Amino acid sequence: ANGMLQNNIWTALSQANIGANLQHYNPLIDDKIKELFSIPDTWKLTAQMPFGSIETQPNEKYIEDISTRLKIY
């Protein structure tokens, strides 16, 4: 469900010509982030999506072949 919500928000922002960047949280920083932004302990931090005006277009993203990024043993 989270993935669909994130995609819908990203699409809506894009249609409004607003750029966004999805960053997933690492649990190691949860306590500091909760303290810094007064986030209740009952919330689970999974990601943040900063958004704003599009100043430049992003560079083309090179995607490495999956066989060099994933190893199954």
Rank of each mutant, 00 (worst) to 15 (best):
E60F: 10
E64Q: 10
D41S: 15
D65F: 00
W43A: 14
S38Y: 06
I18M: 07
Y73V: 07
I9M: 14
K61C: 06
E64W: 03
I33P: 07
A20E: 12
L45V: 02
N59L: 10
S14C: 05
M4P: 07
K34L: 12
M49K: 00
R69V: 01
T11C: 09
E60M: 12
N17Q: 02
F51I: 08
S38A: 11
L70K: 08
K32M: 09
P27F: 04
L28V: 05
L36R: 11
M4K: 14
T68L: 09
T46H: 13
I29Q: 00
L28C: 08
Q6M: 15
N26W: 03
T11N: 09
K44Q: 13
Q57V: 05
S67W: 01
N17E: 02
N7V: 10
E64F: 02
T68S: 15
A20Q: 04
K34Y: 11
W10R: 13
S14Q: 09
N8K: 14
S67G: 03
F37N: 11
P27T: 04
Q6K: 10
I63L: 14
W10H: 12
A12G: 14
N26T: 05
S14F: 09
T46A: 06
E55V: 06
Q57S: 13
N7S: 15
E64R: 13
M49H: 07
I39L: 07
E35W: 00
